[in-house]
């Protein structure tokens, strides 16, 4: 029996476009990223996005187990999206369910085009995405963190993948739907971009949209991704910047 009873807000978005968390339609929730915080993983990233908390780690390139999964001409990319039992208002039973299996697949396919897999034949690259706290948009937070963990692991890539969701609430197209909008909104569209070429590597849609609304949604997703991309690059630079400053300091 859940101890938390959710109530639907009376108004999801006002006539002036003010959302339940006070944001305007185009505003993102705050995004904070830390790269390389895990010692055992080859690459890692921790991401706070609104109320979401996501940890991504990469192992590899490494030996493939079981061996028969080995690909002779390229690396095998594997991905596991998992929600912690304490990530939801009501405790989630540990272990994979149908949703997490699907998300693992779409996240893997969102990252796949960004990696030069052919440079690592016969190996495995394992990506683990752990949702520690969920607050709408965990898959896009997961993709955004995972791409950084891959970069942190030193895997050769075409570029970073950045993901963001857009949604529809009544007549409004909104960027980065919050929990209320995710729960009671009219449409939800997670999108991931390979930022170098602005190729779309993840796209899902849930809920009806007119052609006009859909076009606008993609446009807004692209603009929002540009902003998140900057936060990603800054996070990736930060640990190396510390090293650079340390070298300069010692040189003096």
């Amino acid at each position: 029996m859940p101890l938390i009873v959710e109530k639907k807000p009376e108004v999801l978005i006002t006539e002036d476009g003010i959302r339940t968390d006070g944001r305007g339609p185009l505003d993102l929730r705050p995004v904070k990223i830390q790269v390389g915080l895990l010692s055992r993983a080859d690459g890692s990233a921790y991401l706070e996005w609104g109320g979401n908390r996501v940890l991504a780690a990469v192992f590899g390139p490494r030996e493939v187990h079981p061996k028969h999964m080995t690909l002779p001409d390229r690396a095998l990319l594997r991905c596991r999206y998992n929600m912690a039992p304490f990530s939801t208002p009501e405790r989630k039973r540990p272990g994979p369910d149908r949703r997490s299996v699907e998300l693992s697949k779409v996240i893997r396919e969102a990252l796949l085009p960004s990696i030069f897999l052919e440079r690592y034949p016969g190996t495995a690259i394992d990506v683990f995405v752990e949702i520690l706290r969920s607050d709408a948009g965990t898959r896009v937070a997961g993709v955004t963190a995972a791409s950084l963990a891959l970069a942190d692991a030193g895997i050769e890539m075409r570029g970073l993948v950045t993901a963001v969701a857009v949604g529809r609430v009544g007549d409004w197209v909104v960027v980065d739907p919050n929990h209320d909008e995710d729960q009671w909104g009219d449409a939800d569209i997670p999108v991931a971009f390979l930022m170098e070429e602005k190729e779309i590597t993840l796209l899902q849609l849930d809920g009806p949209m007119t052609q006009e609304q859909f076009d606008k949604a993609l446009e807004l997703a692209s603009q929002a991704a540009d902003l998140i991309y900057e936060v990603q690059k800054e996070a990736l630079r930060r640990p190396y910047e510390a090293v650079r400053l340390e070298i300069l300091r010692r040189g003096e």
Binding site: L38, A41, F59, R80, N82, P85, P94, D126, F128
Partner: peptide, 14 residues
Amino acid sequence: NVELLPLASPTFEP
């Protein structure tokens, strides 16, 4: 309940 997550160590398996 303990979960030895695969992201914690190369020896931990899902």
